[in-house]
Simulated assay, not measured.
Amino acid sequence: MTTTTQAQDEFLRQADPYRRELTAHCYRMLGSIHDAEDLVQETYLRAWRSYHTFEGRSSLRSWLYRIATNVCLTALEGRGRRPLPSGLGTASADPEAPLTERPEVPWLEPAPDAMTGASHADPAQIVTSRESVRLALIAALQHLPPRQRAVLILRDVLKWRAAEVAELLDVSTAAVNSMLQRARAQLATVAPAEDEVAEPATRHQRDLLRRYVEAFERYDVKAIVSLFTADAVWEMPPFPTWYQGPDDIGRLISAQCPAQRPGDLRLLPVEANGRPAFAMYLRQDGVYHAFAINVVTLTSAGVKHGTMFFDRSLFPLFGMPDTLPLAA
């Protein structure tokens, strides 16, 4: 075995355990799980090329985060933020008005828990991971300038010391503290804390999700509406409009959903952004076709937020097929 091969094997053995958390880090920075995958690959390529210079003055984990953060900052140069429709500053829309797609907008994407580490076995880490990748937070982070975004993630999520962040960004500790203060203030205006967000672990929450699935699969709009809270929000990128309140959500489904009768929709559970989610399929031409990834936020009162991501390229990332047979 050559020395180069030995070094490569040694690098991969030590670095591979950090792949999921680095994916989560790049996802927080970019708001795109596709981009995050690409940038983690770039991080590992750069790290491998310069591994011979790694002297161990910091941990390998910290070194990889430094590379990943710089890769992300470079990627963000000249880019705008990735929004959700509800973050565009528009009012809730008329649910019966025509829908117009905006595919040119780089919309925020959901992230499978399996790719970001939010589904691993340590209960304490699960809570931290889930909260740090929830959709509302990722959407809010997109409002911050890239360097402020990096500072807030490194300090408040990863718990780096201000001096470590200052060294990474080549600025003073005072500058880091100033950026962190501004980032926290901005975040508070665009991402208010989610009150009473429930994990789907109790019998009540599991029953709520079961009824949610059954209502959609029966195409029972009245039953669907009954599951939403009074202030529930529904949005559907790449459509730039959003809707608030059970009545408007019900009108939207009745007027715009291509499903027409029971059995037209099939929902299979997945996990995204630390929240329950479903891979939704639509019956067409004798099979179920990939339709949307639906991420839901639950409270003790019901479904508070639903986001439909009409991007079929997400299905493979969730381990879901493009089609299902009708008998599946």
Rank of each mutant, 00 (worst) to 15 (best):
124 A>W: 12
197 V>T: 12
135 L>E: 03
80 G>M: 07
75 A>N: 09
89 G>S: 05
317 L>N: 09
1 M>D: 13
305 H>W: 10
173 T>A: 14
188 A>L: 03
209 L>D: 09
222 K>Q: 05
298 L>P: 05
323 T>Y: 05
209 L>P: 05
231 D>R: 08
50 S>K: 14
150 A>T: 02
307 T>A: 08
249 I>G: 01
291 F>N: 14
36 A>Y: 01
113 D>T: 11
210 R>E: 05
192 P>R: 03
124 A>Q: 14
93 A>R: 06
6 Q>F: 13
161 R>I: 08
4 T>G: 06
185 A>V: 02
319 G>K: 10
197 V>F: 04
145 P>F: 00
10 E>N: 14
45 L>I: 07
110 P>Q: 07
56 G>P: 07
88 L>I: 10
195 D>E: 15
172 S>P: 00
324 L>E: 07
185 A>G: 00
7 A>Y: 11
216 F>Q: 06
55 E>L: 08
106 P>I: 03
117 G>W: 01
7 A>R: 15
200 P>I: 05
288 Y>I: 03
160 W>E: 01
66 R>V: 04
50 S>M: 12
81 R>L: 06
47 A>E: 09
13 R>T: 10
323 T>P: 09
18 Y>R: 11
191 A>I: 10
169 L>Y: 04
131 E>Q: 12
117 G>A: 10
204 H>L: 11
158 L>K: 15
157 V>C: 05
276 P>T: 01
285 D>M: 06
258 P>E: 06
49 R>F: 02
187 L>F: 04
253 I>K: 08
298 L>Y: 12
4 T>Y: 11
169 L>Q: 05
140 A>F: 02
201 A>P: 00
243 Y>M: 02
181 Q>S: 10
121 A>I: 09
231 D>M: 02
38 D>P: 00
101 E>Y: 13
285 D>E: 13
307 T>I: 10
306 G>N: 06
264 D>S: 09
180 L>Y: 03
190 V>Q: 04
276 P>W: 00
156 D>V: 09
2 T>W: 12
289 H>E: 13
321 P>Y: 04
81 R>G: 09
174 A>E: 06
153 I>V: 15
312 R>T: 15
237 P>L: 12
23 T>V: 10
203 R>Q: 13
108 L>N: 02
304 K>F: 13
187 L>I: 09
172 S>K: 01
175 A>W: 13
268 L>N: 11
184 R>N: 03
245 G>S: 04
23 T>R: 12
16 D>K: 14
58 S>I: 11
16 D>L: 15
252 L>C: 06
228 F>V: 02
74 T>F: 06
6 Q>C: 11
93 A>V: 01
227 L>R: 00
274 G>I: 03
133 V>H: 04
210 R>C: 00
325 P>I: 02
255 A>F: 13
201 A>D: 13
27 Y>R: 04
100 T>P: 02
273 N>I: 02
176 V>N: 01
94 D>V: 03
91 A>F: 03
134 R>L: 07
232 A>S: 04
54 F>W: 13
241 T>Q: 15
229 T>W: 03
40 V>H: 01
169 L>A: 04
82 R>S: 05
206 R>F: 00
49 R>L: 05
303 V>A: 00
221 V>F: 11
261 R>P: 08
14 Q>V: 02
96 E>Y: 01
63 W>N: 07
244 Q>M: 10
83 P>E: 04
136 A>G: 15
9 D>Y: 10
47 A>Q: 09
114 A>W: 13
103 P>V: 12
